[in-house]
Design a protein around this nucleic acid. Structure first.
Lengths: 215, 215
DNA sequence: CCAGTTACGCTACGGGTCGTAGCGTAAGAG
DNA sequence: CTCTTACGCTACGACCCGTAGCGTAACTGG
């Protein structure tokens, strides 16, 4: 479980008075995901979510300022389930995480919500920060972990020492992250084709051996 | 120039009566892009576009059924400018198209609109088809072209003959397309970092030599 | 030149959503 | 028991949607 950074849903610390209903929090986030499945992003309304959650509309606005932030929190918890079990070699590790992320993106609520909030974040810096800390950083850790493991196995060269080595490592992690996550998102949402084991195999082959290894 | 497939904007063929104003078409699409820059996707309204274009709101609805389809057409023409000049080797060709696509996605109107309509397309099949023919297929041709060139140069192995070879080639094109376009989109929109020559170089190196070549 | 046809600008409208304010009530803290 | 905060409920103005109706403008075929 990951600590909430943006405490829209956590109780005000050390406060007196009636505490916020944790049950209402859960009901609202569940209702948001369910409504996303049924209605999609565009037709999702705050009133609809409130009705499904059995909660007054004002209760939603006491926690989240608008639809964007609510949906980010509703979807973010889904990313907690991503893991990187050690499968013995880099290629297997990659295929495993690709399939996990593909399965997560195959869900209708993730599919319809993720790109919508990303699109909104292009004109809303606060929302972009929220997405970064709630979703992106959580995924990026998997890349760092997988890379370290591969280096210990000798499958990848170790980082150069010193400050410039650390910088290069950071850039490499960023590049790999964009390539992996971007490819999965693009295949799922734009190409509308499944991230299945066969594709994960081809993709990891490309990633490890480059274009010439595809033939 | 590419022929419009979805003739929301083209005149009804062989019709009598007053023809549609081509000037109004242009003004509406220009106003849509400008409004996207200023307002973003979420706050863009049909009335606002009509006012900016100096056109009645009803004129918009005579051409496009809703905001999604309007924005797809407004943004699609931007993708016409993508080209693949022959720079002599595969690596240079890749870097060239990566930088072009990166520059296109760096525009605010592209950035904010593209992901929004993709998100909507997850619950709207007609919209997904429109995006595919107006935007995606137009980009995919560049991958096909670049791959053929590289094969003629001997930089990539030729396709196997027969039906299964053609299938493998189609899958390879799809994979490469998702990897390239996905990585650029992800870096621009999610990571919020620029697609500059240095990144294009690192990316094309990764693409050609695989992960081990990054160190 | 004239009738027929279609597009345009304008106005108006019902319906829906937004986000907020105000109220009485419910639930813990001291 | 009192203080403080959250809750449900209602109501509200503001905004946007998408359409209908009208008179006018533009182009076509006879």
């Amino acid at each position: 479980m990951v600590a909430r950074m943006h405490d829209s849903t956590s109780p005000r610390k050390g406060r007196t008075g009636r505490p916020r209903s944790a049950e209402a929090d859960r009901a609202i986030l569940d209702a948001t995901r369910a409504a996303l499945v049924d209605l999609g992003w565009g037709k999702l309304t705050m009133g609809e979510v409130a009705a499904r959650a059995g909660v007054a509309k004002t209760t939603l606005y006491r926690r989240w300022a608008n639809k964007n932030e609510l949906v980010v929190d509703a979807v973010a918890v889904l990313f907690d389930e991503l893991e990187l079990p050690d499968r013995g070699c880099l290629k297997s590790d990659i295929e495993g995480v690709v399939l996990q992320f593909g399965a997560l993106l195959a869900r209708p609520e993730t599919k319809t919500a993720l790109m919508a909030v990303v699109a909104e974040s292009t004109t809303d810096n606060a929302l972009r920060e929220r997405i970064r800390s709630a979703i992106v950083d959580r995924q990026k850790r998997l890349v760092v972990l997988g890379r370290e493991r591969a280096q210990q196995r000798g499958e990848l060269p170790p980082d150069s020492p010193g400050a410039e080595g650390a910088l290069a490592a950071t850039q490499a992690v960023g590049l790999i992250f964009d390539v992996i996550a971007g490819a999965i998102v693009h295949r799922t949402l734009v190409s509308s084709e499944p991230v299945d084991p066969a594709w994960a195999h081809s993709f990891s082959t490309l990633l490890l051996t480059g274009l010439v290894g595809l033939g």
